[in-house]
Design a binder for these strands. Structure first.
Lengths: 309, 309
DNA sequence: AAGTTCCATATGCAGATGATATCAAAGTTT
DNA sequence: AAACTTTGATATCATCTGCATATGGAACTT
């Protein structure tokens, strides 16, 4: 049994007329009759009732029809996916992203991808910036959304996307409004490990020092949710990208920081330099689109226009 | 592109070795290489990376693989369904049933069917006994669960299944326990139309007459839920098969009937006489099974063993 | 009764499929 | 380093499948 036979069967089943079905298939009627007969022989079932000068589906034929249609549809999809993978409009794209991208950048990218290239399937993994660089090097991901600057920027395209503001997540004290730098210093910080972003790490500590406060790092942590959990437990205060504010976490409140000139948190897209799979360029393009489209009031990130170089 | 090519591709993709794949496919290696090359040419995509004396899937190949597998799987299913439809183990079976079957007979049949013949798909329609007879005659259903006796029993196999006891559904009076025949007669009845089961209809009225009570039919109704709704509205009392008791309907209570020798409500399976599609015999067999299996305490219906004639 | 419609059968040809033989490249062993 | 092994590609040929044309036959229509 081959797809051809299923195509023939479906055509005949839909027209119930050998001649017309043959015409639709672009072939003559006799070989079509034979093809159907062959299929019936192989399956050991009559698919059509030939009586009364008219064709009618038998029960077996009626049962086969939807299955045949589905098989043909799948074959067509397979074809389209393979072709699409060739020109970068289908296939898997493995995306690494930092948690700062989780609430705005990533969703808008995924939505845009589904709309524009439904045959592209994003495979998402949250990972820190340095992990992304390593994963790109060893080919584990194709595309990263991370926080520059990067340690090794060789063989990578780095496209600045936006600057995120940092806000504080502090144990809920029942109050609202900003926290002062003195309060933050008193609580101590839950911060990412220095290795994970040495430059930003240093700049944050510097900012405190310049303001005349000495701040203690109570506990390093990597993921946003871990940090929030630690904050809720009263371990200290965390500095997180503003979009994290969307999470409501029992025992934690978010507050802008008063009197402290914290560095902005840059966000960039990274990918291997060319030569790289076409799909990477496609996704970069969609990412660009989704940034332009997303600059309404919903998007708090000042969107630097992304250029694919 | 034919299924053959997909089979070849999947074999090579899974072994990553032309020779072994060819062996698995029962063919020589050279034509397999050609077949793959042909597929790549048609799709316009390289599916394998041939470098390093070893095969490796390209991105396009990796994308195609699951689609190809799925297509082959569907084709296999199509085959199985067609074959199964030939020997009565697959396909649609259109079942008509009276509401008395809704809570015990029908579910156990459907469950057994799913277990024993997952490729058989029951298509269920609730209809009265006389409707079932007509539907069988014109080929709208294949199988019925109804209440004998039937008006025209020509060309039908009738297999007695069980006797259901009738109980009363009366407007909720806050009490529990049985109702008397006098009370029922006073309320009047919500009963099915005589045409829908002349024999039972007559026997019910007779039973009242013999007990010395004249009973008024307040309102004819066909479906169990309609009757319950009318009972709740205080129109009268309904006589329903005991399994209906499972429904809890606001404003209605169920009660056994005291002092009235009501006829039992026979239930039977009906189908066209042979010749008939094999699937009908299969379903009759499963029905039989499910009756035997279901004679635990959960089954209040005394199960007469069903014989397929 | 002749004509029309429609599916099945018969026959022939072209192209695809697969087999055998051979080649080429890369890695392994002696 | 040379011979050998492994593995995929290419060449050539036989076979078979699939489609076309021609024809037959049954059922319904005019």
């Amino acid at each position: 049994m081959e797809l051809r036979h299923l195509r023939h069967f479906v055509a005949v089943a839909e027209t119930l007329h050998m001649g017309r079905a043959a015409q639709r298939l672009g072939m003559a009627q006799p070989p079509l009759s034979q093809s159907i007969a062959r299929l019936e022989r192989e399956l050991g079932v009559k698919l059509f009732e030939r009586t009364h000068r008219r064709l009618a589906l038998t029960r077996a034929g009626a049962s086969l029809l939807p299955e045949a249609r589905r098989t043909l549809q799948d074959a067509e999809t397979a074809r389209a996916v393979a072709r699409g993978a060739g020109n970068g409009t289908a296939g898997d794209i493995r995306i690494g992203f930092v948690s700062a991208a989780l609430y705005e950048l990533l969703p808008s990218l995924v939505v845009s991808l589904r709309q524009e290239f439904p045959m592209i399937r994003p495979v998402l993994t949250e990972m820190a910036t340095n992990e992304q660089v390593a994963a790109l090097a060893e080919g584990t991901i194709d595309f990263g959304i991370c926080h520059p600057p990067l340690a090794s920027l060789e063989r990578l395209d780095i496209i600045p996307v936006a600057d995120e503001t940092l806000i504080a997540a502090i144990p809920d004290d029942g109050r609202t409004g900003p926290v002062t730098i003195a309060e933050l210093a008193r609580m101590g910080l839950v911060l990412f490990p220095a290795a994970q972003g040495p430059s930003l790490h240093a700049r944050i500590l510097n900012a405190f020092a310049e303001a005349g406060h000495d701040v203690l790092i109570q506990q390093p942590a990597t993921r946003a949710l871990t940090m929030l959990s630690l904050v809720a437990a009263g371990v200290g205060a965390a500095l997180l990208p503003r979009s994290t504010e969307r999470i409501s976490f029992k025992g934690v409140r978010f507050a802008p920081i008063e009197g402290l000139q914290l560095p902005a948190l840059p966000v960039a897209a990274i990918a291997r330099r060319r030569p790289r799979p076409l799909i990477v360029d496609t996704v970069l393009g969609v990412f660009n689109h989704s940034l332009e489209a997303g600059t309404g009031e919903e998007n708090r990130i000042g969107a630097n226009k992304l250029k694919t170089a």
